[in-house]
């Protein structure tokens, strides 16, 4: 027995918008079935999906060293880390799906180049020191970006980020620990570490995106509580954190203009080469084609597996 469907007075859009605005203003969370402005939904889907893509593609640069990791302990650590990244991608796709997106569809968009992933993963990993530097610098920058996102106005995204951040701290620590060990090792190992730092430092600064005055979408995202700090604020926080870590490690950051600004209490970097950034992000990064080809192969070459399991479920009434 079900009750007849009775008409209720429809809530008007203005009231819904007011309620949404009040929720954001009170720093409460928006949840999946709440009304939300279309722009908010679209911006979130793009952000969360591209964050997820970054995690998944981000498995590859380090994954390239899984089979050759130079000790069984390092192999375990790296495998657990790369596996975590698959997990983080899944948490994030899961959050995107609460907004009405579909994971297979998002994956197609990644493979077709319609959605992007972080430019940082378009650089190759040339030596094992890159594994350490990715943990230290790339994951360090990711943590700077992600910690504020734990307070994102969208509930499922914020919860996914809390889980990711808890797990990510191990990623940075294992990287830094590997570098410390290598710096205590042979002269060759020390040279490998310095070389990797030389190659990854500038790209890691670019992970925070263009300067605030050239970042037109930031204001709306900040107002919506999807973004909590500006690109420059986060980049500054990252630089201030990383410089003393570099000193403790005994490596030189490849920036002759890097200076301590006594007045502001901040480290100041030299100018960032945004032309390179533009090139890499628009798909001319050295590894772009390789990264996407791998995702395409994982999807297409194994489609028969996915289909088989579906067929079995249908046969057996699952």
């Amino acid at each position: 027995m079900s009750a007849p469907t009775l008409e209720r007075p429809a809530p008007d859009e203005t009231a819904l918008q007011r309620q949404f605005d009040a929720t954001i203003a009170a720093d409460h969370r928006i949840e999946p079935r709440d009304w939300m402005p279309e722009g908010y939904r679209r911006t979130l889907i793009r952000q969360v999906a591209q964050h997820a893509h970054s995690e998944i593609v981000g498995m590859q640069p380090e994954g390239d060293w899984l089979l050759a990791a130079p000790s069984l302990r390092r192999k375990s650590v790296l495998l657990a880390k790369v596996q975590d990244e698959a997990g983080h991608g899944l948490y994030l796709y899961s959050a995107a799906e609460t907004l009405g997106a579909d994971r297979a569809d998002l994956t197609d968009k990644l493979i077709e180049g319609k959605q992007k992933y972080s430019s940082i993963f378009n650089y190759p990993t040339l030596t094992y020191a890159d594994v350490g530097v990715i943990g230290w610098l790339v994951d360090g920058a990711a943590i700077c970006n992600q910690v504020p996102l734990c307070r994102s106005s969208y509930g499922p995204y914020a919860r996914a980020m809390i889980r990711v951040c808890k797990e990510e701290s191990f990623h940075q620590r294992q990287g830094y620990e590997l570098l410390m060990t290598m710096m205590r090792g042979t002269p060759e190992q020390r040279a490998m570490v310095q070389d990797a730092v030389d190659r990854w430092w500038w790209p890691s600064l670019m992970m925070f995106g263009p300067p605030d005055d050239a970042s037109p979408n930031s204001a709306q995202s900040m107002a919506w509580g999807i973004k909590r700090h500006t690109n420059d604020e986060l980049r500054q926080r990252y630089v201030d954190m990383s410089v003393p870590q570099a000193q403790a490690l005994g490596v030189t950051l490849p920036d002759p203009d890097l200076t301590w600004d006594e007045a502001s209490g901040h480290w100041r970097t030299g100018p960032i080469d945004w032309d390179e950034f533009t090139r890499v992000i628009s798909g001319s990064g050295p590894m772009n084609a390789v990264r996407i080809a791998r995702r395409r192969a994982a999807r297409d070459d194994n489609a028969w597996v996915t289909e088989a399991a579906t067929a079995y479920a249908e046969k057996h009434g699952a």
Partner: peptide
């Protein structure tokens, strides 16, 4: 923009 944890 630097949206998402892994940056721009």
């Amino acid at each position: 923009t630097a949206e998402g944890g892994h940056g721009a």
